[in-house]
Nucleic acid binder design. Sequence first.
RNA 1: CGGGGUGUAGCUCAGUAUGGUUAGAGUACCUGGUUUGGGACCAGGGGGCCGAAGGUUCGAGUCCUUUCACCCCGACCA
Length: 567
Amino acid sequence: MRRSKVFIPTSKDAPSDAQLVSHIFLSRAGFVSQNAAGLYNYMPLAKRVIRKIENIIHEEMNNIGAQEVELSFVTPASLWEESGRMEKFGKELLRFRDRKDNLFLLGPTHEEMMVDLVRNRITSYKQLPMNLYQIKTKFRDEARPRFGLMRGREFTMKDGYSFHASEEDLNREFDAVEASYKKILSRLGLDFRVVEADSGAIGGSASKEIMVIADSGEDTIAICSKCEYGANIEAATRSVKTELPEAPEAAFNKFQTPNVKSIEELKAFFKVDAYYTIKCVAKKVIYDESSEIVLFFLRGSDTLQDVKAMNATEALEIEDASEEELTKIGLFPGFVGPLDQDKAKHVIDESLRGATNMICGANEQDYHFVGADLSVISDVAYFCDIAQVNEGDSCTHCEGELSFSKGIEVGHIFKLGTTYSKALKAEFLDENGKAQSFIMGTYGMGVSRLVASVVEQHHDESGCIWTKATAPYMVNVMVSNIKDEEQMKMGEDLYLKLQVAGVEVMIDDRKDRFGFKMKDAELIGFPYTVIIGKELVNGNVQIFTRATKEKDDVSADNVFKSIMELI
RNA sequence: CGGGGUGUAGCUCAGUAUGGUUAGAGUACCUGGUUUGGGACCAGGGGGCCGAAGGUUCGAGUCCUUUCACCCCGACCA
């Protein structure tokens, strides 16, 4: 393409509302423009990058035998009523009625549609397994869209769904998709980690997230220093501590502790390590139609992981409980402990099972117990892993230590089981002629989010640095001064030659000056720019490598060959 | 949904506390000329219902009321 003709509106200024580097550069370099909250237009450059990513996805999906389909974006609400997700999804679902007053929605994900597509069409175990996918616009009416393409309301996603006759076969497919996703991310040139994840409300037995490592990521992941283990902080686990701080050994006793309410105050008062104190985190737990106060007990050195807490109580939502709410049911905030606790339902962290020498609230104003032994309630209390791992905790798979990192969730794969096939009565006949529900997996990958992720990971102060696999154009032929006939001729010749060789090439034939065109090329981020300028009189041009900003002199005669070797 | 902020030229923003000709700058754009290795210079030019509606006033970008949009923090996020 000719830079003088192509639609790439670059700008020195970013829109004032852009925060994230990917948003700033994708806007400034003329890839995207914002329409409304969470809605973006893709301009030619963005479209090219997206197509490249899609092609890689198609190739890898093809390699594992997945088949491409395309489901309609507008979805009959009746399917979602059938699965029961109409309610669950809430306001995120954009609903509307057609001229006949039938209710529809814009698909935020397509489990229902895909199950509907195969039910009564795939009817025998002989037709299984089947992995169907699409790359398509999704719409989720996010409460707070943000960060440019990272969290839009309308976005492009690859979503795949697999159907199996057995758990074993689902496991095999799940592993195949995971391997395939890793390959896609590697090909795109991204630094990523596959981590264990919370399965969330979608249910199912296991899920993994594919996280692109970036400081701007919205998720925190815990990763092991030695082995492959990584997990979203919501799901991360740790092994039992082996090196313990010195225990405050004492006989069981009740101690007066006026105004000692927080863990910090407790530590100071008894001069103990927080590990031997018990904190109570009181939450209001909200269920389908009711709510109640639940007390979560943890070691003073830990913090409550909300998602684990929700899973432990099967809650829809949890909120902080106020002091008044606690006082109302007869608790003494600051002095709540797990022993003799009958005022509210409670959950005790797994790490406190059988714990001894503990200091905890005595459920009495201004009193704490010392020397508490939780083994006395081991049989009756509800223990569950509800603590968030800390940096430095030990890995459950090896002797490594866990550390935290920020990640962008670009993929999420689930073992769904029969949740949706049962709800939608999608069945096949097994070898014995018996009707069985499909065992399913679901696999998502955010395509538009990947575009932003590449920029998050590959940029510098001047702009984008596209990887070879994602670059909208591989080579930019920059004619420094278009009034110089030699330069222009050289540029046109090289442009033509590269085109014929199948290289994605742009020629910058604008009448602007050298500096302007260089800044522009750096902002857009072409991997290579051939500078045809003042050195041409000596028979030389330069190859500018965007990633390193290095300019290498090459003779004009050899530049085609040099470029072909580089790309 | 709770808290905060911002809406003035394509973009980035002054101007609003204290109302007063024809609403500004930079940048981008158009014309002409000069320039051509790091976002050039000179001259001329086009571009605005000051987010919207209502009100106060002789007079509103500026004051009042209502409303909409966008952004940030939080909640939420298969």
